[in-house]
Amino acid sequence: MPEDDERELEAALARAGITPPPGRMRGLLAAYRDLRPMLPLLRGPRDAAAEPAGIYSFDNITRDRGA
């Protein structure tokens, strides 16, 4: 229901204390409708392997490169 989407977005913006600039609500609503189906992916359980910080080697980041 398009009206429900708009009410949900307005409520979420109000909870976050966000007041969109004039003329931006249509774009925000379109983005909200596109991103909402992805929420289950964001809120799903994750293990340590899914943490991006685990993909870097501290030695590679701190190695002196002859500078």
Rank of each mutant, 00 (worst) to 15 (best):
P52I: 13
L13K: 03
L35P: 00
L42G: 05
R36P: 00
R46A: 15
R26F: 05
P37R: 12
R24A: 14
A12E: 12
A16C: 03
A49R: 11
E10A: 14
D5I: 01
E6T: 05
L42Y: 05
A12M: 14
A50F: 08
A31G: 02
L9M: 05
I18G: 00
E8A: 14
G54M: 08
A16R: 11
E51L: 11
S57K: 12
G27K: 06
N60W: 06
L28R: 06
P20H: 12
D4L: 15
M38S: 11
A12R: 07
R7E: 14
G17L: 12
G27R: 08
R46G: 06
P40Y: 07
P20E: 14
R36H: 06
P22C: 04
R15C: 07
R63A: 14
T62V: 15
A67W: 06
P22E: 15
N60Q: 10
R63N: 03
A48Y: 02
L9H: 04
L29D: 04
A53T: 02
P37I: 14
G54D: 05
L39A: 14
P21Q: 15
E8H: 09
G17Y: 06
I61N: 01
R7N: 04
P2N: 15
D47E: 13
A53H: 03
A48R: 09
D5T: 01
A14Y: 01
G54F: 01
G44K: 12
P52G: 09
G23H: 05
L9V: 06
A12H: 02
G17Q: 12
G54R: 10
R65E: 14
A16M: 13
L13G: 05
A11W: 01
Y56G: 07
S57H: 09
L9K: 04
D59C: 04
T19G: 01
A49T: 11
M1Y: 03
G54Q: 07
Y32M: 07
E10Q: 13
T62Y: 09
I61H: 03
E3K: 03
